[in-house]
């Protein structure tokens, strides 16, 4: 196992940031921690990267204990925090050189690992890090986290606030890194990114809701979901929320995802009800659950 977490808990005064968290990440796995702000993702990253002690429980990273062997872990992992943490007043090249030197290596030694990513920022190698665009900062931070060829890579919300194009490029990079013998633990609040991981843990309020492959997680969804559409979105949502048999009502793009509390639900009954609310152009069709549906059902 690359990462093994056993019954980890962490509190800050009254706030229970993590409650009895356990999971394992296999060698070369791309494992996603999926959850909103405040779920405890960063606290977990800080414990696993030896920057914070847990109150309870144990964990190992690359075979080393996070408390007793912390120095060995620091040499074996790369960590890209959620907040941009490179030196703003050093240039791109200086930052990379700095991190290589700290870890007793050189840019040349591990260049093939970062090459794909570095060539994209190389034209700006003499620019100060503080003057880079968001997407370029993110690429530089990833290069710096990789320059000592870590066994395990920790990426805390690398794509938050990043546009869909840059997000896709970033995930393509992660997939390529995985091929190079690196275990990756990545966190994200974007549910659509969950599908790109080998396995995911859904996390909210310091607790893990479920751990599995993305495919298995959506299969576990307990109910049939219906896409519902009508002429007026606001009235549709209001009417569905008032419907006595609803189990869940969530806007989803151009539709509302609806589940019914009855076992013998007949979509026609719902149509009649919605028509009685003066809605028209009503469409009700079965649809498949997404990770986000599952997350909301579990978090309810």
């Amino acid at each position: 196992m690359s990462i093994s977490v056993n019954h980890i808990s962490k509190s800050y005064k009254k706030v229970k940031a993590l409650q009895d968290i356990s999971f394992e990440v296999k060698q070369n796995e791309l494992f996603g921690l999926i959850g909103p702000d405040g779920a405890g993702k960063t606290t977990l990253f800080r414990i696993l990267t030896t920057l914070l002690f847990p109150n309870e429980g144990t964990a190992t990273v690359a075979g080393f204990d996070v408390v007793t062997d912390y120095k060995k872990i620091r040499n074996s992992v790369g960590y890209m925090p959620g907040k941009f943490s490179l030196y703003q007043d050093l240039t791109v090249e200086e930052n990379l050189n700095f991190f290589a030197t700290i870890f007793g290596t050189t840019i040349e030694e591990n260049y093939d690992l970062i090459k794909d990513i570095y060539v994209q920022i190389e034209p700006f190698k003499n620019r100060r890090a503080g003057k880079l665009s968001g997407g370029m900062k993110q690429k530089l931070a990833l290069c710096c986290a990789l320059i000592h060829k870590p066994k395990v890579l920790f990426l805390d919300e690398p794509t938050t606030g990043v546009d869909p194009v840059s997000r896709k490029e970033f995930w393509d990079m992660l997939k390529r890194l995985q091929q190079k013998n690196i275990t990756i633990l990545v966190s994200t609040p974007y549910m659509d990114e969950a599908a790109l991981c080998d396995r995911i843990a859904l996390i909210q309020d310091g607790k893990i809701l479920e751990i599995d492959t993305p495919e298995a997680i959506v299969k576990h969804f307990p109910k049939q979901i219906y896409n519902v559409r009508a002429n007026n979105m606001y009235q549709l949502i209001t009417s569905l929320n008032e419907y006595q048999h609803n189990h869940s009502v969530y806007p989803f793009g151009e539709f509302v995802h609806y589940t019914d509390s009855r076992t013998d639900f007949n979509p026609n009954d719902l149509k009649v009800y919605l028509e009685s609310k003066n809605l028209f152009n009503i469409e009700i069709e079965k649809t498949k659950a997404t990770i986000e549906d599952t997350f909301m059902e579990l978090a309810k």
Binding site: G35, P36, D37, G161, Q204, P251, M296
Partner: peptide, 10 residues
């Protein structure tokens, strides 16, 4: 809605 949980986002 950046970073907000999916239920609150809705």
């Amino acid at each position: 809605t950046g970073g907000v949980d999916p239920i609150t986002r809705r």
